[in-house]
Simulated scan of single mutants.
Amino acid sequence: MAGDALSDLLKTVRLTGATFFDIEGHDPWAVHSPAPASILPKVLPGADHLISYHVVTAGHCFARIIGDEPIPMEAGEVVVFTRSDPHIMSSHPDLRADPPTADVLDIATAGRMPFYINCAGGGSRSVRLICGYLACDALPFNPLLEALPPAIKAGDARGDGGWLGQFIRQAVSEVADKRAGSETVLTKLSELMFVDVLRRYVESLPPQQTGWLAGLRDPHLGKALALIHDRPAHNWTVDALAKESALSRTVLAERFTRIVGMPPMHYLAKWRMQIASELLSAGNSNVASIAADIGYESEAAFSRAFKKMIGVPPSAWRLGVRAAAGSGSDEASETEG
């Protein structure tokens, strides 16, 4: 059930692979990745949020968010920067790198993927990297992003039989062979790799951890979250969710609020608006049908709730007006049952 909620979220926030780089580093070398605002318009216009990742396919290197401690990386490991904070990949933890020029960023819009970059420092080759970006919607509601740390490092402790080992082999093959459809394969591979990193991260969370991912791991809360995601239009109450989740009403309400970070009915309201925003952006349904799809009895009631929670009316969101999104009231329009 918990996996279903994660899958639903990733589909609804439109997770997609964007750009793929093949990087070869010769000591000494350092590469600076800029802030998302300068990358998103080039690699995936229209997306809210950028995630970057670096997979070490051979050798070793260091990854470091600007201002943070360096993260040592070995072959078979991946680091995911969940907010794509400005960061440096380098052959030595103390090396600095100049911010990339527009010419470097323009690589992302020219030619076929993967884009090859040779970091020639004059010495022997110390690393081979497969790097890229993923994009997704952050607005109006993406609880996953709030639950993730800035950086996640994962390694294939299970050896070549694990998913990261398979990802590396397949990605290296696609990069080398450049067969028809390789861009699509690389894009989908990066999405699958990210999901696997998320699952590993969930498995590593300490028992006292809170947040949306911790909620997925809790068998009772995971059931409640899956029910909300599976049937968002259902007339849910806290009593009904508690019964389905094998908890008392009081325990569900307290545990859900403490771990997930908001009451169950508040979460339901926000999730409905996330679904509505995706349907509005797709442009294939009218407002009345969207209202019915997420459990509102009338178009007017839905429109009022959407504007109250998101800050703009549904018609404005459909036209891409997001500047005011999130500035409205954050109170759920439903009352707890």
Rank of each mutant, 00 (worst) to 15 (best):
D218W: 03
N118R: 13
F167D: 03
P207D: 04
D85C: 01
L164K: 05
E174M: 08
A246T: 03
A30M: 02
S7T: 14
C131N: 02
E336K: 08
D239K: 12
V13Q: 07
S33D: 01
A316T: 11
T210W: 00
S52F: 01
S126I: 07
E334S: 10
T19D: 02
V175F: 15
W236F: 10
I23R: 07
L6Q: 03
L6T: 02
P140G: 11
G67M: 12
Y296R: 01
I71K: 04
W163I: 13
R318D: 01
N235M: 06
Y267S: 09
Y133L: 03
L148C: 00
E24F: 00
S182R: 09
D22R: 07
A242G: 02
Y296S: 11
R112A: 13
G122H: 07
E334N: 01
V251M: 15
A97Y: 05
L198P: 00
M265R: 13
E331D: 12
H54A: 13
E74Y: 11
L192C: 12
C131M: 12
S245T: 02
R258G: 12
S182E: 14
A269P: 00
Q170I: 09
I88N: 06
G261N: 05
S277V: 00
P100S: 10
P114D: 05
P232F: 09
L227A: 09
A246K: 15
L280K: 02
R217Y: 15
V195Q: 06
A151G: 01
D103K: 05
F20H: 10
R304L: 04
P232T: 08
A30V: 06
L227Y: 11
V13F: 15
S38L: 15
G181K: 12
I66P: 01
D156G: 14
V31K: 06
G155P: 13
G222I: 00
P264Q: 07
A226P: 06
I228Y: 12
M89Q: 08
I152K: 09
D330I: 05
G181P: 04
P263G: 09
A58F: 04
R255W: 11
G215Q: 09
L247K: 08
K243M: 11
D98C: 03
V185S: 09
Q209W: 03
L189T: 15
G211Q: 01
Y267H: 15
D68W: 10
H87M: 00
A269H: 04
G132D: 00
S90A: 14
L105T: 00
A176Q: 14
P232W: 09
V312Q: 06
P149Q: 14
G328Y: 01
A63K: 11
V195T: 11
G261M: 02
L213A: 07
S245F: 10
G67H: 08
M73P: 04
T19S: 08
V79R: 07
R231Q: 08
G76M: 06
A135G: 10
G222P: 01
A102F: 05
G337V: 11
M1E: 14
F21S: 10
E334D: 07
I65L: 12
A47S: 15
W29S: 08
R255C: 01
P100I: 10
F62L: 04
P41E: 15
A151W: 03
S38M: 14
